[in-house]
Amino acid sequence: MGYHAHIERLDTSAIIDLKGRKDALVDWKGSDLPAIPERPNTATDANGLELYWIGNDHWLLRAPLDREEDILRTFDPGSAPHDVSAVLVSDTLVFFSITGPDAGQILSIVSPLDIALEAFTQNGVSYSEAFGLKALIIRRTEGYELAVERSYADMAQSYFTRIKG
């Protein structure tokens, strides 16, 4: 029996970690990036790229893996100005998708993040705690995505299986 939720480990995404002041970032590659999100812990997207604002002067740029070479050329870490840091971190995160009518229940079991629509809006993305670990939680139309550091992925999988029932 168990909860009506489907939890699936996703393929690796291409991810670039961006740090630096907003104006420095925009100066460097504003035209190639989606619009800079206006509210903390929200996401924007354009041309298949997603931009997550998840900390002070800290963003994640995400794209499907087959575009990794492409975005590395555009956002070449070696050519960033001295006040912007771009680092490839694709392999550091493993994403799980959580969908189905009970997806929200699964989230409420693993994380203290308030995922009600009022608190975690339509384009919400935030780091929070899940199974005692740091996890990136994203709201999707079909449910949620939750990412943990790669080394913890097996444990996360084990945990999900256990709680799903």
Partner: peptide, 11 residues
């Protein structure tokens, strides 16, 4: 006292 948002934004 200080708090670090270690499992969050890192502030």
């Amino acid at each position: 006292e200080k708090w670090w948002h270690v499992r969050g934004c890192g502030t």
